[in-house]
Amino acid sequence: MRVIVGTDIASIPIAIIIALVIGGVLIALSGVNPFEAYGALLQGAFGTPQHLADTLIEATPLALIGVGIALCFRAGVFNVGAEGQFLLGGMAAAITGNLLSTAPAIATLLAMAIAAVLAGAAWAAIAALLKVYLGASETLTTIMLTYVATYLVSYLLNGPARDPATPIAQTQPLTTSGLLPGLWPGTTLHVGIVIALIVAVAAHYFLRRRVGGFQIVATGLNPVAARSAGLPVRRILISVFLTSGALAGLAGFIQVSGVQGKMIVNLSPGYGYTAIVVALLGRSTPLGAFLAALFFGALSAGGASMETSVGVPASVVTIVQYLTVLLVIAYTAARTLRRPSRVADEEE
């Protein structure tokens, strides 16, 4: 944990640059001018209003889920199952939205968001309770629960929740009262990014200024000492897990309501997993995770453009994303190894 939280900020731009250079070499090997490819990537991420909107739209679920995972990291637990919490959030939002299709938009959207938050939190609660009361590794249970969630959503979409008008595994399209309002006329940008920003700022404030946030940080740094000092460690762990699940569920709501307009089987191209990396790159801080999500969103939006316009596979972008994080971790680890732990300096 210390490695993750204590990352040297300076290492991040360096890691990004090195990862981009390695990505450039890979692009060159595939026979494309890397500068041209990265030009296309920049163009695709920021070049037009719609492209900028795409970057922000991609960043939104990553930021929401990433902030939740960062909170978990700070408390010393690992929520690897945000993917499942996200899918169930999307599912709950779509079902609620279709049930309330004739209600006023504000009521429908609120109900959808609440349903999604509850679904995500409930799914996370299973893993949290298993960990706190039975000592089951949350890493394993959340992964297993993600499988269950994926198949549950697939079952619902192929069965009871399927739009009878189509054989495709998806719900009925939401009516306009179930769609998130747009933010930037002329683009597909919706208000989700504002929600994500508010969540990130609130989480930042919580960690810095609230007793609960202080207790999360203390627990993450040394749960034994925290417990010994009377901190409600179990309750803290359960609450960060539920919060993380709730934020993943909220992200599911935003994707359903703001992007797809219905629940589909493949709602997530792996947001729940990418967000783990976003949280790592964001040094487990909410604002850091938000910035990392913007970076990943730009890479993702720009990568699609790079693929379509210069024919470089978008997987290069994935490589750059993960290389960045690996390099940050390696850099931090190398520094930690080279400079022996301060524990040894104890008697000075």
Partner: peptide
């Protein structure tokens, strides 16, 4: 031109 491995999302 083509784009492969495009998810529904």
């Amino acid at each position: 031109a083509y784009a492969e491995n495009v998810s529904d999302a």
